[in-house]
């Protein structure tokens, strides 16, 4: 199958494919970050994660419409405003859901799974009723369109680069928040020993609520970033939920680094295989390999051995 291509062509195809894999990697990381916080730190399975993401995407869409119609002069920077709005919208909804639902279910993880699935169905219908069943796409500001030529055969899309940069920025921010800030220390304290954390004066309920809110907020930002590379519909969130959970579990649920490494592995595997095989076969093979590896090594890629 390679005989049709020259060596230079083949090389540039691999580079392009690698770049596509990197975009997929960014997408996975963005999705998985919020989930890793909620699942890894709180042990809560949030099946509505995709819908929180879509909320961010819708917020971005409406922000872009608002800028386009009312302040077109600032259209170039609307995305940054949208991202912040998306974070707070999804985060606020997340905190509300935590208060109304999740906090009653901390001891029943499987039930959280079912309840958040119910939530996801309701949110999907809300989106459909309010925003309509059709997919919407944002208009990109001019500076994000087009592509950068790297060599005469290889070029990379600017919006893709932007999403990658964004991913790095958000990841760094989350890492700093979780591992360097006082608040992150509190979260980790609550995770390790809830009773003790409460006893030393940490408001565990508040920590739970903000952690959940943060996870959902990051989902919102992820959704916002998504609008740069794809369109948004009421059920778009569902498409990603399985991949995202696999990324998080594969990485070893409690490790941020593991999540990133696993997102990288899975996205590269998938995009490489997509080049050789049909899209669906590549997807099946990727997911199947992940599942089989998880069956053989259920603790995921990265794990800390602890005393029981």
């Amino acid at each position: 199958m390679f005989s049709d291509y020259s060596l230079a062509e083949l090389g540039s195809i691999f580079v392009m494919q690698g770049f596509a894999g990197l975009i997929l990697f960014s997408v996975f990381v963005l999705m998985a970050l919020g989930l890793a916080i909620i699942f890894g730190q709180m042990g809560v399975i949030n099946m509505a994660h995709g819908e929180f993401m879509i909320l961010g995407a819708y917020v971005t869409y409406f922000t872009s419409q608002f800028f386009l119609n009312f302040i077109p002069s600032l259209f170039n920077i609307y995305f940054f405003v949208a991202m912040i709005l998306a974070f707070f919208a999804s985060g606020a909804l997340g905190m509300f859901i935590e208060w109304a639902m999740i906090r009653r279910l901390y001891k029943r993880p499987l039930d959280t799974l079912l309840a958040t699935w119910g939530l996801s169905l309701i949110l999907q219908q809300v989106y459909r009723s309010v925003f309509g069943p059709r997919e919407v796409g944002v208009e990109l500001p001019e500076w994000m369109m087009g592509s950068l030529p790297v060599t005469d055969m290889v070029e990379v899309q600017i919006n893709g680069l932007f999403v990658m940069g964004l991913t790095i920025a958000i990841t760094v921010a989350v890492a700093v928040l979780m591992y360097k800030s006082n608040w992150g220390k509190q979260v980790r304290a609550v995770v390790q020993n809830r009773v003790m954390a409460g006893a030393v004066g940490i408001n565990t309920e508040k920590v739970d609520r903000y952690t959940f809110g943060l996870g959902c907020g990051i989902a919102g930002v992820a959704g916002s970033a998504f609008t740069m590379i794809g369109s948004t519909g009421p059920t778009s969130g569902q498409l990603y939920i399985v991949d995202t959970f696999l990324v998080v579990v594969f990485g070893g649920a409690q490790s941020l680094l593991g999540t990133i490494a696993s997102a990288f592995t899975i996205s590269q595997a998938q995009s490489t295989m997509e080049f050789f095989l049909s899209g669906s076969t590549a997807k099946v093979l990727t997911l199947l390999s992940v599942v089989i590896i998880l069956m053989l090594r259920p603790q995921g890629l990265f794990v800390i051995k602890v005393r029981r």
Partner: peptide
């Protein structure tokens, strides 16, 4: 209805 059922049955 279905979503509400999921939540109600659990909660």
């Amino acid at each position: 209805g279905l979503g509400g059922l999921f939540i109600a049955v659990v909660l």
